[in-house]
Design a binder for these strands. Structure first.
Lengths: 237, 237
DNA sequence: CTATAATTCAATCAATTGATTGAATAGTTG
DNA sequence: CAACTATTCAATCAATTGATTGAATTATAG
């Protein structure tokens, strides 16, 4: 009968080793960034390298590690490998990790507060506040991510204004528009920069910290009305 | 204006570094085990060392790492340091990690199936099935964890039968009892061993893979009726 | 077929992490 | 106070991981 307990212990140890296979993937800041980028849509190695600023071969190596742990998959298109997250549960894990880190690590608040203080006129709205504004007012909800990511999925009612197009977009915008900008989520501060620029140009602008993933998890795919001033009907995810 | 984008990138990189502080904690199987044990209640270093089989000083070192990342806290009682999880969100992260690992890593299913095949008469019930049995039948729900863990919290209606007391408990048990046994959760296979022993002795016994944490997350602290054959009123968590 | 592009693989070195041993520290008891 | 207990810290070595460079592989186009 002691055999059974020894077996139980061996199994338990091995189960924890399996758990740490995925745990190890989360130990690298670079891999966390790659996973987050892939949570916004499939991407080539080249694209990931460009966004993260990492060497090509290093990105590839991190991806092989994520592949081995079954966190990502890829398809081939000509000479390109297109990587994606292997399962939506990866997003759940990433947001759980973010939630805990944000709660426990004071350094994170310091970092974000410090940056926001540099842009001292920028106001952040919660998801509920944004949802209310969509319901009760005429606002422009700007998705600042690259178009390919917008097309994969976006908050209903949002319009796509990739960051590098913001300047030209502003030039054609009516001054009385009320604007909320969002980007990839809490680890991306582009929404703050955009809101700051818009306010500098006299617009009534806010930012939302969260991105599409957080929105979906929060509203659990509940039906959300479309922003009333949308020019073209946004394609539903 | 390029300064802002450089700042944004610097902030982004630093935010990912912060995220990886907690990510790094998850890269060790031993630390995952420690965190899971602490999710069942506060413990001394000594106790953790005894359960995990690790050297004393090694446990202490892992705990210092978890302390630095704010995943655990401790209080002093005489010469003893009692460690606890710093926040319930740690449990959320652990279960999210488990869910993903279980889904993605075939080796886990192989491990558990292999062990269950050794105990080929053991039947596993889902949490819903257990909940139904509690509602509709007279069952004994056995919590196999140490008493201290049971007292911190347990599934309503469960009675405490620590693993090492199972043999004596069986001797005083009516043969017609219907029994469901649970332990610390999916990474602990003691429930299978207990159900196997009970069935060997002629009892009508099942196991539940999940533990208290999973039960609470699943039923979201919904009110669950007490098992009708409970001898003493279980203390509510 | 050759040249090119995108990616992976292998080798190497640097950096980090895990485990152990023994010393140091803090608290308690007789 | 001395002796003991529980834990942490420091030093050391082994193991693992991260980053870089360059070679190898795969797919495509002319």
């Amino acid at each position: 009968m002691n055999d059974l307990f020894e077996s139980a212990n061996t199994i338990k140890d091995e189960l924890y080793r399996q758990l740490s296979r995925i745990g190890k993937c989360l130990s690298s800041d670079k891999r966390l960034e790659i996973l987050t980028l892939l949570s916004q849509g499939p991407k080539t190695v080249e694209k990931l390298a460009a966004i993260t600023g990492m060497h090509f071969a290093n990105v590839s190596r991190h991806l092989q590690i994520l592949l081995e742990a079954k966190l990502v998959t890829f398809t081939k298109n000509k000479t390109h490998a297109i990587y994606s997250l292997a399962d939506p549960a990866v997003v759940d894990l990433l947001t759980s990790l973010w939630r805990l880190s944000e709660k426990q690590l004071a350094d994170i608040a310091k970092l974000k507060d410090g940056f926001m203080n540099e842009l001292d006129d920028v106001q952040t709205l919660s998801m509920e506040e944004v949802y209310d504004k969509i319901n009760t007012q005429s606002i422009l909800l700007l998705d600042l991510r690259p178009k390919e990511e917008f097309e994969i999925g976006h908050i209903p009612g949002a319009i796509s204004v990739p960051m590098e197009e913001l300047d030209s977009f502003m030039r054609e915008l009516q001054k009385d528009a009320e604007i909320v900008a969002y980007c990839r989520g809490p680890l991306c501060v582009y929404s703050a920069i955009a809101a700051h620029k818009l306010k500098d140009e006299g617009f009534n602008a806010y930012r939302m910290d969260e991105g599409l993933n957080e929105w979906q998890q929060h509203f659990n795919n509940a039906k959300v009305p479309e922003a009333s001033s949308s020019d073209k009907p946004p394609r539903r995810q």
